[in-house]
């Protein structure tokens, strides 16, 4: 048999290999359904349901004229980022490590680090599409204005995405396997979403909780989003908090990351 005598005259560059890897990982993330279902579908349905509740069109006290529903749009954007970065990403990567996917890649010229970046890019891309979708549904379907400070909003979103993906990497680095990675992500998700105001708007929390909230990644993200919605460039504290999470978690994750 001459299975090997048919060398194709293709010269694959690393650029195209990376691109293919990103495409493959995006496809796998979508097929995996965790991200699309919980990270995109679930908040989208919540958004639509909340959009038809008239009581939520009342302005929230101490929220600068934003209604309950207005506030839910950035909360659900954070919901989406948190699911993708803290559940989907670590579950997939820890699974890859557990099943030897990373080990197999170690034997190829590409190496396992690139599948890590491909996963980050894939989840980032899914989150980006989801955010645009949420903003469009909220705006076109329920008349929610776009953030009045778009640049501030984009910057806040990028920092929030970076902070959460870094936390996802940290979970991947520290969790011994796929199961624990999912568990850690899920356990962290609920308190973090609480501080973003999923159940009670942050503005209505007791002062202690508000202060704590400002130092949590999702609370800081929410604060930055809210300011951008109201037309200001977000203040330094939430932006620096997000940046600190992004840098700090990445450094620890890199230090402790294991390929096998």
């Amino acid at each position: 048999m001459s299975v090997l005598n048919t060398a194709a005259p293709v010269t694959a560059t690393h650029g195209s290999a990376t691109w293919r890897l990103i495409k493959a990982e995006s496809k796998l993330s979508i097929r995996d359904k965790v991200g699309p279902l919980w990270g995109v579908g679930c908040p989208l349905i919540v958004l639509i349901i909340l959009g038809v509740v008239p009581a939520l069109k009342e302005p929230v006290e101490a929220a600068g004229g934003l209604t309950y529903f207005d506030l839910y749009v950035p909360v659900l954007i954070l919901f989406n980022l948190a699911i993708l970065a803290m559940t989907a990403l670590p579950t997939t990567l820890a699974g890859y490590r557990e099943n030897g996917v990373l080990r197999r890649l170690q034997t190829t010229p590409i190496g396992p680090a690139r599948v890590l970046s491909a996963q980050l890019v894939a989840n980032f891309a899914i989150a980006l599409v989801a955010t645009i979708l949420f903003l469009a549904v909220a705006g076109l379907g329920f008349g929610v204005d776009l953030p009045r400070h778009p640049v501030g909003f984009v910057l806040s979103w990028l920092l929030a995405a970076a902070a959460l993906l870094a936390i996802g990497l940290l979970i991947t680095a520290l969790a011994p396997g796929r199961g624990p990675a999912t568990a850690i992500g899920t356990v962290l998700f609920f308190p973090m979403m609480f501080f973003a105001g999923l159940w009670v708007p942050v503005a209505q929390m007791p002062e202690v909780l508000q202060t704590i909230s400002h130092y949590t990644p999702l609370g800081a993200g929410m604060q930055a989003f809210q300011e951008a919605y109201l037309g200001h460039f977000p203040s330094a504290l939430p932006l620096l908090t997000l940046a600190a999470y992004a840098v700090g978690c990445t450094l620890i994750a890199v230090r402790w990351f294991r390929w096998e």
């Binding site: 194709a8 293709v10 694959a12 195209s16 290999a17 293919r20 890897l21 493959a24 496809k27 796998l28 097929r31 995996d32 997939t92 699974g95 890859y96 099943n99 030897g100 996917v101 080990r103 197999r104 034997t107 190829t108 010229p109 590409i110």
Partner: peptide, 20 residues
């Protein structure tokens, strides 16, 4: 002990790895 992602298809895996 080297596996592949569960939902990666045979042709996709081969095409992807050949690009490396």
């Amino acid at each position: 002990a080297g596996q592949l992602p569960d939902r990666l298809q045979v042709a996709e895996a081969l095409e992807l790895y050949s690009s490396f």
